[in-house]
Simulated assay, not measured.
Amino acid sequence: MKHSIRVQVKQLKSPTENRVLRFIGSTETEDRDRDVIRATGWQLENYKKNPVFLWAHDYTVPPIGRALDVRVENKQLVFDIEFPVKGLYPLADTVYELYKGGFMKATSIGFQR
Rank of each mutant, 00 (worst) to 15 (best):
V36N: 06
F103K: 12
F53Y: 13
L68W: 03
W42R: 06
T16W: 14
P51R: 11
R113V: 13
Q8M: 12
R66W: 15
L91R: 09
L98E: 10
S14Y: 03
R6D: 14
D35W: 07
I5W: 01
I5P: 01
H57A: 07
Q11T: 14
V9G: 03
T40N: 13
P62T: 10
R32T: 09
Q43W: 10
A56N: 14
V61S: 10
H3E: 09
L21T: 02
L44P: 05
V9N: 02
T16D: 14
D69I: 09
A92N: 04
R22F: 01
T94Y: 10
R38V: 05
G41C: 12
K2G: 09
R19C: 04
V70E: 06
G110Y: 08
V70Y: 06
L44K: 05
A106R: 05
G110D: 11
P51T: 05
V61L: 15
E97C: 01
R66E: 10
Q11Y: 06
Q112A: 11
R66C: 11
G41K: 13
R34M: 09
V72C: 05
W42P: 05
F111Q: 06
V95K: 03
H3S: 12
I24D: 04
R66K: 14
N18A: 06
E97Q: 10
V52N: 12
D33E: 14
E17Q: 15
D69Y: 08
K49I: 05
L54N: 04
E82V: 05
G102M: 02
K105Q: 12
Y96H: 07
D93T: 04
K2M: 11
Q8G: 13
N50T: 13
S26A: 11
D35L: 14
N46F: 12
A106G: 09
V95T: 06
R22G: 00
L54Y: 07
V52E: 11
L77P: 03
Y47P: 00
P15H: 12
V52A: 13
V78K: 05
V7P: 01
S4E: 12
L98T: 08
K48N: 11
T29G: 09
K2H: 14
I109H: 04
L21M: 08
Y99S: 00
I5Y: 01
P63V: 00
I109M: 07
T40F: 08
K48T: 07
F111W: 12
K2A: 10
E97G: 02
K86N: 07
S108M: 11
T60K: 13
F23M: 06
T60R: 12
P84H: 06
V9D: 05
V95G: 01
E97N: 08
F23R: 03
